[in-house]
Amino acid sequence: MATRIKICGLRTAQDVAAAVACGADDIGLVFFPKSPRNLDFDAAAELALTVPLGVRKVGLVVDMDDAALDDLLARVPLDMLQLHGSETPERVADIRARSGLPVMKAIGVATADDLVGLDDYMAVCEQILVDAKAPKDADLPGGNGHTFDWSVLGDVNWKVPWMLAGGLRPSNVADAIRQTGAPMVDVSSGVERAPGVKNPDAIRDFCAAVRGI
């Protein structure tokens, strides 16, 4: 089965076109004001209209409250929510019920200790995203360009589909998939020429590296 590819942090129609042309399965739209990839809802609604049918639109949110979440979902046509904050399993379940959308919960990992409680999240969401744990002084919960020790994932009993993220780029994604068996991969900073500015050549090279395995 082909590895699923998500290109996250897209901000322009050109970004979307580059990702789609290279065979990306998912595109990620970021709704987090501190991120250089942040979109306002109006811009995101326009961008979502450029995404062809069959490509999943994933909205990344960070500890978003109910009012903002309701506004987002009323204005932007999304297919999935990616929760990238400190949401508890209870909050994940609440957002899943409130939104009516499938939910992907991001888990920051540095050591095996960070996987404690993973079963609780897998019980309340459709998908898990395993990302490199953000440094203590980081402003962003993800998209920092760091990898982690992939070997800590070796003993996980995955009860839901999962996606690997964290420092992936064209030069290392094939090795990451071989080492972890990841069925899905996610990239953002690894295909940028500057924070928030995607490089279509890097997107092409990333997708080619994944598809070439």
Score class of each variant (00 low, 15 high):
A2R: 12
T3Q: 13
T3H: 14
K6R: 14
K6T: 15
K6E: 14
I7G: 08
C8V: 10
C8K: 07
C8T: 07
C8F: 03
L10A: 09
R11H: 03
T12I: 09
Q14K: 08
A18T: 05
V20W: 09
A24R: 00
A24C: 11
D26P: 05
I27M: 09
G28L: 12
L29E: 02
V30Q: 02
P33F: 01
K34V: 00
K34Y: 01
S35Y: 04
R37Q: 03
D40S: 06
D42E: 14
A45R: 10
E46D: 09
L47D: 04
L47Y: 02
A48S: 14
L49N: 01
L49K: 10
T50L: 03
P52A: 10
G54A: 11
V55W: 02
R56I: 13
V58F: 08
G59T: 08
G59Y: 01
V62K: 09
V62A: 09
V62D: 12
A67Y: 00
A68G: 13
D71L: 13
D71C: 12
L73N: 12
L73C: 14
A74S: 15
A74D: 14
D79I: 09
M80N: 08
M80H: 11
L81I: 05
L81S: 10
G85F: 04
G85Y: 03
A93G: 03
A97K: 15
S99V: 01
S99Y: 01
G100W: 03
L101S: 13
K105A: 07
A112N: 13
A112P: 04
L115H: 07
D119I: 01
D119N: 05
M122T: 06
M122V: 10
C125Y: 05
C125A: 10
E126W: 02
L129H: 14
L129P: 15
K133A: 10
K133T: 04
A134G: 09
K136I: 06
K136Q: 11
A138P: 02
P141L: 06
H146K: 14
D149N: 15
V152R: 10
V152L: 07
L153Y: 00
V156E: 09
V156Y: 08
N157G: 01
W162G: 11
P170Q: 00
S171W: 14
N172F: 01
N172R: 12
N172M: 14
A174E: 14
A176R: 06
R178W: 00
R178I: 00
A182G: 07
P183V: 05
P183T: 02
M184K: 11
D186Q: 11
V187Q: 12
V187I: 15
S189C: 05
S189F: 03
V191P: 15
E192I: 02
R193Y: 02
R193V: 11
A194W: 01
P195V: 07
G196M: 04
K198C: 09
K198V: 06
A202Y: 13
I203S: 13
D205Q: 15
F206D: 03
C207H: 01
A209C: 06
V210D: 07
G212L: 10
